[in-house]
Design a protein around this nucleic acid. Structure first.
Lengths: 128, 128
DNA sequence: AGATAAAATGATAATAGTTATCACTTTAGG
DNA sequence: CCTAAAGTGATAACTATTATCATTTTATCT
C-alpha cells in the first residue's frame, strides 16, 4: 500500500474525531476540516484499511436482508464460500443479554449475532 | 391486518420451501410456483410480517456500514432513539466462538453482535 | 535528479436493494 | 351490497456503494 495524503487524513479523522461514523459522516467531517476528498476515494480507502485490519467495518456482511420464518431466538452463520445461511442455536451465548444489560444499563430490545467463515461442506470440498 | 392472497402465499413459501431466503430468492420461488407477485408487494408484506413478529428479518439493522478505528474485539449497540452506536465489551459473551465452533464444526473467521434498544441517556430523557 | 512502473485519485456512470407514489382492486363490516 | 379501509403493482425515486478510466502521485531504479 503506497502512502497517500488522503488516506492519512481519513485515518486521522477516524481515530481522533469520530465515533463509529458512516462513510457519509466521515465525508462531512473531512469537509469541515477543509479536506475535500472524493467519496470514491473515501470508500476505496475505508475498504482497503479494513482489509488490512487497520480499521474495522461494522455491518451485516451482506447487502440484502434475509427473512426467516423461525422467530425463535437463534443466530446465523454465513458461509463465505457458498453464501448459505445457517442457523446457530441460541445457547452458544448464555446470559448474553443479561450480561450486556448489567454492563451498560441500556434497555436491550433485541440483538443479532452473525458469524462468518467456512461451513463444513465447503471445508471438506476444499480439503480434497 | 386484512387478509390477502399474496401475503398468504408469501408466508406459505417462506415456511415450506425456503431457508433464509433474500427477497430476490423469494421472488424466484414465488414465480416458480406460478404466483407472480410484484416485488413492491413482497417487500411490503415481508416488512409487515416482520413487524408483526410473524417472521424475522435478519440484517445489520442499518443500511449503511459504520467504521471503527478500534479493531479490538468488541460489539455494538445501536440506540433506536438517537441512532448512536456504542461499544460493548467482548466479555459479555465469553466462549462464544468456542461454543459455536464445537456446536457446528464450522470454521469461524469472524462474528459481529449488534444489539438494539434504548441507551441510558434516551431512557432518562423519556422518563422525564 | 530523471525516468518509469505501480498505485492512488476523483469525476462520472452504473448497480443493487429497497422505499415512495398513486391509480386501481380487494376485503370486511354495517 | 355499499362503502371505507387495506392491499396491489407499475413506475419512479432514493441510498449506499462499486466500476470505469483518464489524470496525478508515489516509489524505485539507475
Amino acid at each position: 500500500m503506497n502512502y497517500s495524503k488522503q488516506r492519512e487524513k481519513i485515518l486521522d479523522v477516524l481515530s481522533n474525531n469520530a465515533v463509529h461514523p458512516t462513510a457519509e459522516t466521515l465525508l462531512e467531517l473531512l469537509k469541515s476540516e477543509n479536506a475535500n476528498i472524493g467519496f470514491t476515494t473515501l470508500y476505496r480507502n475505508l475498504n482497503k484499511l479494513a482489509q488490512a485490519g487497520i480499521i474495522k467495518k461494522i455491518d451485516g456482511l451482506e447487502s440484502s436482508a434475509h427473512f426467516d420464518h423461525n422467530t425463535f431466538e437463534h443466530y446465523h452463520f454465513i458461509c463465505e464460500e457458498c453464501g448459505k445461511v445457517f442457523d446457530i442455536p441460541a445457547n452458544v451465548a448464555p446470559d448474553l443479554v443479561k450480561n450486556t444489560q448489567s454492563a451498560t444499563g441500556f434497555d436491550i430490545a433485541g440483538h443479532d449475532i452473525v458469524f462468518h467463515g467456512i461451513c463444513i461442506e465447503c471445508k471438506q470440498k476444499k480439503g480434497q
